[in-house]
Computed example of a mutant assay.
Amino acid sequence: MTIIEQPDKEPIFKKRSLVRVPIRLGADVFLGGEISKENIDRMIDTMTAFKLLMTSHKIETYRACATSAMREAKNGEEVANTILKKTGINIEIIDGNDEAAIIAATDLHNLIQSDKNYLYVDVGGGSTEFTFYASGKTIASKSFKLGTVRLLDDTVVNSMWEDVEKWIKTTTKPYTKIELIGSGGNINHVYKYSGKTIGKPLSYFYLSSYYQMLNSLTYEERITQLNMNTDRADVVIPAMRIYLSAMKWSRSSKIFVPKIGLADGIVKSLYNDRLKQS
């Protein structure tokens, strides 16, 4: 990502490249407790490729963060050390609170209005991060072990849903005019499919109808009829369930879908750290 600084204005963050490699470590960890030899080898190959891409793009600073699957894996630290030795890339295993804080630092000033309140929901494979904004300020952030891969593997207990519901209702109860902000590959796909103009929100009714349509299709039909990637066609259903639940519990009737997420928060945190040092 390139950062363009402007006198007396907010900096502009522009993506140079976005490369996604869906290894799905959670499929190992949430069921077996550790990362498999096959996926360790895939991670080493992937990190080697990313290092070459960084060299090609002349990247000056980077931060590699591992989230839910790596922090829960029995061999997470061992795998991180192996990758460091093999590739030279230092992977930082961050906890849920760090993850939520990084996402909360994401640049949302173009979207958030001071007279409205927002619940930001970032859905991942192993966890979902929630951040609540009111009057343009961050009020609360929380990470829960509620993710798409966990739901597919049926490793989420009912009490986790109850904890999320309680947190959202308690946090948002004193406020009105609450709208959702959703990030993650699944909601981005749904937004693209909707044909909405950039900046326009999706309604609860649209998302609910889309969710029902997804459930009416087989895995293969989601790939062929909705043009989904094979690694998206299964996790999209539990992802929509999380977004719809968050909308219901926060009394939100619409969801905005800017193209932001954990990666954007990491870049902004690196930029802010550099400003502090200068």
Rank of each mutant, 00 (worst) to 15 (best):
Ile23Pro: 07
Asn75Val: 04
Trp167Val: 06
Val21Cys: 09
Ile112Asn: 02
Lys58Phe: 08
Phe205Ala: 14
Ile187Tyr: 04
Ile83Tyr: 01
Leu270Ile: 14
Asp231Met: 09
Asn97Met: 09
Tyr204Phe: 14
Arg232Val: 06
Phe256Met: 03
Phe50Trp: 04
Ile12Glu: 09
Thr128Cys: 06
Leu146Gly: 00
Ile59Phe: 01
Asp107Leu: 04
Lys166Gly: 09
Gly261Phe: 01
Leu31Tyr: 10
Lys166Ala: 15
Ile102Cys: 03
Ala27Tyr: 10
Lys15Gly: 02
Arg16Leu: 11
Trp249Gln: 12
Leu119Cys: 07
Gln212Ile: 12
Gly124Pro: 10
Thr87Lys: 03
Arg222Asn: 04
Asp98Trp: 01
Leu207Met: 14
Leu217Lys: 08
Ala73His: 05
Tyr204Asp: 09
Leu217Gln: 03
Met160His: 12
Ser141Glu: 14
Asn117Leu: 02
Asn188Gly: 05
Ser135Gly: 11
Asn81Ser: 15
Ala134His: 07
Asp231Asn: 12
Ala263Ile: 15
Lys37Asn: 15
Tyr191Lys: 11
Asn188Glu: 13
Lys254Ser: 14
Tyr243Glu: 05
Asp231Lys: 10
Tyr120Asp: 03
Glu77Asp: 14
Met43Val: 06
Glu60Gly: 10
Asp153Tyr: 07
Thr171Asp: 00
Thr218Pro: 06
Ser203Asp: 05
Ala140Gly: 03
Tyr210Pro: 09
Lys145Cys: 04
Gly126Tyr: 10
Gly26Arg: 01
Ile3Val: 15
Ile3Cys: 04
Gly265Phe: 00
Met43Phe: 13
Gly136Arg: 00
Asp122Ile: 06
Glu99Pro: 02
Ala27Gly: 10
His189Asp: 13
Tyr271Val: 04
Lys85Ala: 15
Lys142Thr: 10
Thr230Ser: 12
Ile40Glu: 07
Ile59Gly: 10
Gly195Asn: 05
Ser114Glu: 12
Met1Leu: 11
Ser252Asn: 01
Ala263Phe: 06
Ile112Thr: 05
Ser127Val: 00
Asn229Gly: 13
Leu146Met: 10
Ile255Gly: 04
Gly32Asn: 14
Arg232Gly: 08
Leu53Gly: 02
Pro22Leu: 04
Thr2Asp: 14
Asp154Ala: 14
Val21Ser: 08
Tyr191Pro: 05
Ile237Val: 15
Val29Asn: 03
Asp45Glu: 13
Thr2Arg: 08
